[in-house]
């Protein structure tokens, strides 16, 4: 069962010369080339390209509108309705992160803070975007719904240091996210 013997097709004399097949091949390749040169590449409409190939001309044209909800872009931290930073620096993302891109410095919330009940939050939260592989493990592992992969994908920088997103930048990208579980309210 496992092995299927495929018999080679029997070729006639003309086919054995290959010339016909090669000529047919030329026609196909030329058809593509001519269609491309006429800006009529097949499938170009669907990709919104110019028609010279289906390649999108990236910085001028973008696919942003078509990004699916499950798109995994840059990871970012979010705040909730009450503007509380959701991260409590449990460091599970740091632990799970396959390329070790995340570095968290935990800190204690001072007792005069309105959210002193939470006790802990990150003093510093750094994601090295040169290391990040956009796997989304951090989002999956987060017990506090604090880290999400956003749709930002153009993460650029002129220096390595520019590519390290610090806490401020992460909250900037992440913004506010509503409708999450509020486990730190007084009801518990």
């Amino acid at each position: 069962m496992a092995v299927v013997k495929v018999t080679r097709p029997k070729l006639n004399a003309g086919e054995k010369m290959y010339l016909g097949a090669i000529f047919k091949g030329f026609v196909i390749t030329m058809k593509h080339a001519i269609a491309s040169m006429r800006n009529k590449t097949r499938g170009a409409d669907a990709m919104e390209s110019t028609g010279l190939g289906i390649t999108m001309q990236y910085p001028e044209q973008k696919w942003d509108g078509h990004l699916p909800d499950y798109y995994r872009g840059a990871p970012a931290l979010v705040t909730d309705e009450q503007d509380r930073e959701r991260c409590v620096s449990c460091q599970l993302c740091e632990f799970i992160c396959p390329p070790k891109a995340i570095k968290i410095t935990p800190g204690e919330i001072p007792s005069d803070d309105p959210w002193a009940k939470v006790e802990k939050r990150p003093k510093e939260f750094e994601i090295d975007m040169t290391r990040c592989i956009y796997c989304g493990m951090c989002e999956e592992v987060c017990p506090e719904q604090a880290i999400y992969l956003r749709k930002d994908y153009a993460i650029t920088g002129l220096k390595r240091a520019d590519m390290v997103h610090n806490k401020k930048k992460l909250y900037e990208i992440g913004g506010k996210r509503v409708g999450l579980v509020n486990k730190w309210n007084e009801l518990k």
Partner: peptide, 11 residues
Amino acid sequence: RFSAIIQDRVG
């Protein structure tokens, strides 16, 4: 360039 247009790319 020619390879590209044959393969529906831009080059």
